[in-house]
């Protein structure tokens, strides 16, 4: 590649990415704290749903063995069809009873304040699947805070990063 082309290319990339983050997305520090249940590590998926509770985007997957993804059947039926982007970048290690995971969630601003939801679903081998362990509306007025879980999740904390 010649030099001018390279510079132009870098400039364009730069502008595009600057533009993107302008319209952009907001970052939240997210902490998932599990109850002290006994059993295997939990598989957890964090996704954005639209107003009809249909999946829009997968934000985070805790559990790196794809063999077990079908254990989260509602998400799996979306994910399998969507043939989504490589999930490696948003995949983390599973956590077990009493443990927590801390990571950054990148939430697109266009999901805010128009009926979208954030879903945390969980599944533990030999135990049950929980579709809405945490389900919260994506509202800019209430997105940061502490949200109680209904089953394996004790609570989720979201803090603007």
């Amino acid at each position: 590649m010649n030099k001018i082309h390279l510079i132009t290319w870098i400039a364009i990339t730069f502008i595009v990415s600057a533009f993107k983050s302008d319209v952009g997305s907001s970052q939240y520090k997210c902490m998932i704290q599990l109850t002290n249940y006994s059993g295997e590590g939990a598989y957890i998926v964090v996704s954005v749903l639209n107003a009809n509770k249909e999946y829009v985007e997968t934000l985070r997957v805790l559990g790196d063995d794809e063999e077990w993804y079908p254990d989260l059947p509602t998400w799996w039926s979306f994910f399998e069809k969507a043939g989504q982007e490589n999930v490696d970048a948003i995949t983390g290690a599973t956590i077990a009873g009493g443990e927590r995971s801390i990571f950054i969630l990148d939430i697109d601003d266009r999901y805010l304040d128009n009926g979208h939801f954030l879903r945390f679903e969980t599944s533990v081998e030999h135990q049950n699947y929980v579709e809405n362990d945490v389900l919260l509306p994506l509202k800019s007025s209430s997105i940061s805070g502490k949200f109680e879980g209904s089953d394996y999740i004790r609570y989720v904390r979201l803090i603007p990063n």
Binding site: M31, Q33, T35, N36, Y37, I102, R154, R157
Partner: peptide, 17 residues
């Protein structure tokens, strides 16, 4: 912790204890 929790706070949340 980075969330201002002491060991005592964490133990108090522990369902099994």
């Amino acid at each position: 912790t980075e969330f201002e929790e002491s060991a005592y706070d964490l133990a108090q949340e522990n369902e099994v204890l």
